[in-house]
Simulated scan of single mutants.
Amino acid sequence: MARNLQQHILDVASELFYSQGIKATGVDAIVKAAGTTKMSLYKYFPSKDDLVVAHLSKSRVKLQGIIEAELAQSGADPRRKLLAVFDVFERLQASPAFRGCPFINASAEFADAGSPVQQAAADFSEAFAACWRR
C-alpha cells in the first residue's frame, strides 16, 4: 500500500503541477486532491522541491518512452527519425490538455540556476540533446 500511496500522491501532484502550475499548486491542494495527509506526503517527499523533481522525473520517463517508441517505428533513416520527433510534438500539442513542455514550464517558474527543479529540467534538456549525438 505504501508504494501505491506514494505513486498516487505523485500522480495527483503531477496532474496539478501541469494543469495549474507548480508554484500555484500548494501542498494543501495536493493533499486534498490525493485524499491523504501532509504527514503522508512528507513521508515520501520531504519537500515540495522533492515532489516537483519526482514529477519531472516521471514526465521525463513518459516523454522519452513516447519519443523512443516513435523513433523505433521510423527506421534507420536520419531524416525520418527527425521528422518522427516532430510528429510526437505535433500530437502532444494537438491535445486539449496540452499546457506546454513540463520542463520549460518548471524552468520558467524556478529561474534560480541552483534550484534542484532547474537542474532536473536542465538534465532533461541535456539528455534530449545527447540522443541526437549518438
Rank of each mutant, 00 (worst) to 15 (best):
R80F: 09
R91L: 08
L16V: 04
Q7N: 13
A108Y: 14
Q64M: 10
S115Y: 02
C131S: 15
L71I: 01
F86L: 12
A13L: 03
V88E: 09
R133P: 08
V12G: 06
V52P: 13
G26W: 04
A72L: 07
L10D: 00
A76I: 14
S95M: 09
Q6L: 11
I30G: 01
D28T: 11
P102Y: 05
Q6F: 08
H8I: 00
Q118P: 10
Y44S: 08
F45E: 03
A34H: 00
V88N: 03
V61E: 15
D123W: 06
T37W: 09
V88R: 06
T37H: 02
L71R: 03
S40A: 13
A97S: 15
E90Y: 04
A108L: 15
A120P: 02
F98V: 06
L10N: 02
L56T: 10
Q73I: 02
P78Q: 05
P102R: 04
E68Q: 13
Q93P: 10
Y44A: 06
S115D: 07
R134I: 15
T36C: 15
A34G: 07
F17I: 00
K38W: 05
D50N: 07
W132F: 15
A108M: 15
W132Q: 03
D77R: 08
G65P: 07
A108G: 15
C131E: 14
D49P: 06
L51D: 05
F128M: 01
D49W: 02
V52M: 06
S47L: 00
V52H: 00
G35L: 01
A97R: 09
G75D: 07
L41G: 02
K58E: 11
L82G: 15
S47K: 00
A94N: 13
L71V: 01
V85E: 12
S95K: 08
F124T: 09
V31M: 03
F89W: 15
C101I: 08
P102N: 05
K43D: 05
A129K: 14
G21S: 10
A29V: 05
P116A: 08
K48D: 06
L92K: 00
R80E: 03
I22R: 02
Y42M: 06
T36N: 02
N105G: 07
V53A: 00
V85L: 06
Q93L: 13
G26K: 10
A120L: 03
A127E: 14
Y44L: 09
F124W: 06
N105A: 07
I66A: 01
L92W: 02
E126V: 15
P116E: 12
H55Y: 14
M1T: 06
P116L: 06
F17W: 13
E70D: 12
P96H: 11
V27E: 04
F17L: 05
R99M: 12
V31A: 01
F124Y: 07
K81V: 00
A29Y: 04
K43Y: 13
E68F: 09
N4K: 15
L51I: 00
K32W: 02
S14M: 04
